[in-house]
Each structure stands twice: as C-alpha cells, then as structure tokens.
Design a binder for these strands. Structure first.
Lengths: 123, 123
DNA sequence: ATACAAATTCAAGTGCACTTGAAGTCAAGC
DNA sequence: GCTTGACTTCAAGTGCACTTGAATTTGTAT
C-alpha cells in the first residue's frame, strides 16, 4: 500500500490533484484508522488508466461516467464498451487533425529553410 | 472583401471570437470609412492557418508571438522557423500519446466484446 | 514529550479560451 | 424617415481542470 505522496511520486500527479480526483469520484483510496489515504497497487493501476484517458482529452465528466459503470458491475459492460469506442473515434479524429497540420508545417518549415539558406548565401 | 459574418460563415468562427482574436493581436482586418471590419482573402487565409495551430493546441500566446514576428519582417524568419519546429515536435508528442492510448483501448474493447459475447451465449 | 514534516478538510483562486451581455451606432429595405 | 438586423466597444461571465490557501490533525524521529 502506498501513501498519497508515494503515488504522487510514481505517477507525477500532485497529492492535491489526487484528492480532487477522489472528490470528483474517479479515484478511490483506502484509509488508515485515523483517516489517512492508502493506495493499493490496483488503485494505482486505475489511476494510470484514467490518466491515459485524460491525456487523450477525455473530459473528467465522461471518466466519471465510466467509473460509475465499473462500480455498478458487469451488467454495464455494454455501456462501458460504448464509451470506449466513442473515445477511440475521438482519438482517431484528433490524430487526423494533427497529421494534417503536421503536413502543413513540414511544407512551411521547408520553405523557411530554403529562404534562410538563400539569404545566407547572398551575404 | 468579406464582412465579419461572411468570414464567420466560411470558417465556423463566431464574429465575437474574430474580434477577440483581433484584440489578442493574432488577426487583422481592414475597416470601412465608418469603421466596420472587412477581410481580404489573405486575411481569411491567415485565419485558416492560425486555426490549424489552435486545433493542434498551440496556445494563443505563442500564436501571438509568431504573428508579431511575421509583422516585423523577413529578418525574423529564423525565429519563426524555430517556433514552427517546436510546435511540430509538440504535435509528434501528442500523436505518440494518442497512438499509445488507442492501442490500449483496442485491447480493452476486444476484451469487452469477448466478455459480452460469452455472456450472451450463456443466456 | 516535543518538534516538525506530511496529512486532513473545506473553500476560494487561477489560467485559458472563449462567450455573453449591455448599450449604443450604422446601413439597407420598405 | 423609420424599422430591423448587423455592427461597434467594453466589461463581466462561463466552463474546465486543476491549484492554492488556511486552519487543523497526525505520525515519525529525536
């Protein structure tokens, strides 16, 4: 079992943010008798999972929805599948936009390099 | 020359947001004698360009920096090149994260599909 | 026991990128 | 010439995802 600062260390997420995630209902923790948070390996695994969702811009509200389904049990499998599939489409959309802009920038960068090279050789 | 609402129509950006971009110094417009905005084809082209930067999460502050360089003239070509190259790296980083999460979700989706199928056939 | 770093809760604040509102000006159609 | 809708400026508000602060309690090391 890990303390909040150990988990913060392991994952790069601040203790404050971990408490905020718990407030928001997307993270869980155990508590010592005096009320201090302790995290199981599984809970850290869950954190890593939801961080991947956040990194790819799934809103906290949707992660919350997914988390609720998980808590409700196996009969929500179809709903979970649906959420994940929608997010995958979202990811594919994001990649398409990134690729497009990358291509545009490649051209522009090439232009700038030629321009700078030309200027240099005239000096 | 286009009016603000024509540009809004063409690009999907609200008139209000166009004025905000001008405030922020990342867009330009001409004015009629009475002070109403008119956009040249070039200005619309610039808008489309900065929208691609925004879509790929370049902060408005950096776009502003780039815009200033453009206004300053050719001697800033190297600085502009640098900004674009940094943003391209940023894009590549974003794509890497998206691909990683996509791979993870593909596995999870497959698992859910198998699980649901198994449950179905037991009914 | 005592010091002190780290934990707790609850509330308020921050930064970004818009968005909305209020109050007024302008221009084209009837 | 008057209405109507689009335009203007300037300021305040919104939503998201944290972040910071204040006041208090807890746990470990001397």
């Amino acid at each position: 079992m890990y303390t909040i600062s150990e988990v913060a260390e392991k994952t790069g997420i601040k203790p404050h943010t971990l408490r905020y995630y718990e407030e928001e209902g997307i993270m869980q923790s155990e508590r010592t008798p005096s009320g201090i948070r302790r995290y199981t390996e599984q809970q850290v695994g869950w954190l890593r999972f939801i961080l991947k969702l956040r990194e790819t811009n799934m809103p906290v509200s949707q992660i919350k929805q997914y988390t609720h389904y998980v808590k409700e049990g196996d009969h929500t499998a179809l709903d979970r599948l649906h959420l994940l599939e929608v997010h995958m489409q979202n990811i594919q959309q994001q990649m398409a936009e990134l690729r497009e802009t990358e291509a545009m920038l490649e051209k522009k960068v090439k232009m700038y390099k030629e321009m700078i090279h030309t200027t240099d050789t005239l000096k």
